[in-house]
C-alpha cells in the first residue's frame, strides 16, 4: 500500500540528493545548525552507525525515520552526547553545532546539553511537583536570579508547551498525577525552560493516544519558529505531517536525506521507496 502525503501545501519538486551535505538541499537557504561529518558509532566492537554525514538546518523540523534498530535513536543521542553514559561506547567523526565540534576535547558536556535539549520517548517527569520539574534545569544551571524570575520562566515555558492553562492551579501538585500526554508536554516545557537552541525528540508521541499525539504535533509546529527541532519517529505519517526534512536510516546507515515531500513521493533510493510504501519494516 502507498501512503498519501498529507501536506500538499509544502509539495514542491526538488533535486534528488543522496548526500545530505549537498547544497541543493538549501533551497530556502537557512543557517546550518548541526553539521555531522563521517560519524560512526560503536558499542564495544559492534558498529551501530556507519559513516553518517548530514546537515540539519536551523528553524526547521527534521525527522529521522527507519525500522527499529536502524540507529536513528542512537544517532539522535550522539547529537547531545547522551551516549557518553553508556559504558563501552565509542565515536568517530565530527558533530559540529553552530560550527563548534561537540566531541572536541575540552568541550563541556553540561553546557552542550544545555544548548541541545532533549525529550524522551517515555515521559520522565521527576518525582517532584509540576513547578519543580520545570524549574529543575533553571535551578541547577543557575539561570534564574530571583524567585520571581524563576516563576516567570516556569510560566513562560509551560505556556510555550501549551500546558499552562491546564496546570496553573496545581503547580505544586506531583507531576506524577498528570496524564501521559500532559507529562510529555511537561517534559517539553522542562526542556524549553533552559532556552536551548535545539530540541531533540526521541519518539515523543509513541506512548500517547491520538488526541495527545495531535497536541504534541501542533506544539512541534509552533516551536519551530524559535527552535531547531530534530524528531525521531517510527510513524511515517507523523514524519510527513510535521517535518520539513526527513532522513531515512537503515541498518546503521543513512540511506537518504531530503525534503520530506520528496522522500515520501519520489525517493531516489529503492530502499527508501520500499520503506515509505510499507513494503517492509
Amino acid at each position: 500500500m502507498t501512503h498519501q502525503v498529507s501536506s500538499p501545501t509544502r509539495f514542491t519538486t526538488g533535486l534528488s540528493v543522496r548526500d545530505g551535505r549537498d547544497p541543493a538541499l538549501n533551497q530556502a537557504p537557512k543557517a546550518v545548525k548541526i553539521d555531522v561529518e563521517h560519524l560512526s558509532f560503536f558499542y564495544g566492537v559492534k558498529r551501530a552507525l556507519e559513516d553518517i554525514s548530514l546537515q540539519i538546518q536551523a528553524n526547521l523540523v527534521t525527522a529521522f525515520i527507519g525500522p527499529s534498530g536502524c540507529g536513528k535513536s542512537t544517532f539522535l543521542r550522539t547529537l547531545n552526547r547522551m551516549n557518553d553514559i553508556i559504558p563501552g561506547a565509542r565515536i568517530e567523526g565530527h558533530v559540529r553545532i553552530d560550527g563548534l565540534d561537540a566531541y572536541a576535547s575540552g568541550v563541556d558536556v553540561v553546557k552542550l546539553r544545555r544548548k541541545v535539549g532533549m525529550v524522551f520517548q517515555k515521559s520522565n517527569p521527576f518525582p517532584k511537583t509540576i513547578f519543580e520539574n520545570v524549574a529543575y534545569g533553571l535551578r541547577i544551571n543557575g539561570l534564574a536570579a530571583s524567585k520571581s524570575e524563576l516563576a516567570g520562566r516556569v510560566e513562560e515555558s509551560l505556556k510555550q508547551a501549551a500546558l499552562w492553562g491546564e496546570v496553573k492551579d496545581r503547580l505544586h501538585e506531583s507531576a506524577l498525577a498528570m496524564s501521559g500526554g500532559q507529562q510529555q508536554r511537561l517534559c517539553i516545557a522542562r526542556a524549553l525552560a533552559i532556552r536551548p537552541d535545539i530540541i531533540l525528540m526521541d519518539e515523543p508521541a509513541s506512548a500517547l493516544d491520538p488526541i495527545a499525539t495531535q497536541r504534541i504535533e501542533e506544539l512541534v509546529y509552533d516551536l519551530k519558529q524559535a527552535y531547531t527541532i530534530v524528531i525521531v519517529t517510527h510513524n511515517m505519517q507523523q514524519a510527513a505531517r510535521i517535518s520539513d526534512h526527513t532522513a531515512f536510516f537503515w541498518l546503521g546507515r543513512l540511506v537518504e536525506y531530503d525534503r520530506t515531500d520528496k522522500i515520501f513521493t519520489n525517493p531516489s533510493e529503492k530502499l527508501t521507496e520500499d520503506y515509505v510504501t510499507g513494503r517492509f519494516g
Binding site: V110, M118, P127
Partner: peptide, 27 residues
C-alpha cells in the same frame, strides 16, 4: 530508579553529581 530519570536530568545540563543528588537519590 528508572534510567529515564537520570537521562532526563543529564539532558537538562545536570552534572552527574547533580543528577545523583537532586533526582536519583531523592527518588
Amino acid at each position: 530508579v528508572p534510567n529515564a530519570l537520570r537521562e532526563g536530568a543529564l539532558a537538562l545540563g545536570a552534572t552527574r553529581a547533580r543528577a545523583v543528588f537532586t533526582v536519583i537519590v531523592p527518588a
